[in-house]
């Protein structure tokens, strides 16, 4: 779930930046590994695995929503 959340939230963030999408990919590739490791450490740092799973799922959904809205706005 950390992998999905990291990709989702990083892609959403870079998509919102006013840069060309090729640059957004490069930036995303750099950030996503940092975010992935951070989320992994986060899950270990909190006392409940269930809470960790919930938080990562929320993050993944949130990132996906932002990305979808961004795509729709662009398409519009």
């Amino acid at each position: 779930m950390g992998y999905i959340a990291a990709i989702s939230v990083t892609s959403a963030f870079t998509a919102l930046l006013p840069i060309h999408r090729s640059q957004a990919v490069f930036l995303g590739l750099i950030l996503v590994s940092l975010v992935w490791v951070s989320l992994f450490v986060y899950v270990f740092a909190i006392p409940s695995w269930l809470r960790g799973f919930r938080d990562l799922t929320l993050l993944a959904v949130l990132g996906g929503l932002v990305l979808a809205i961004d795509k729709l706005v662009l398409a519009g």
Partner: peptide, 9 residues
């Protein structure tokens, strides 16, 4: 992280 490409393209 192939999905990072897909997300933008």
């Amino acid at each position: 992280f192939i999905p990072v490409f897909l997300a933008q393209y």
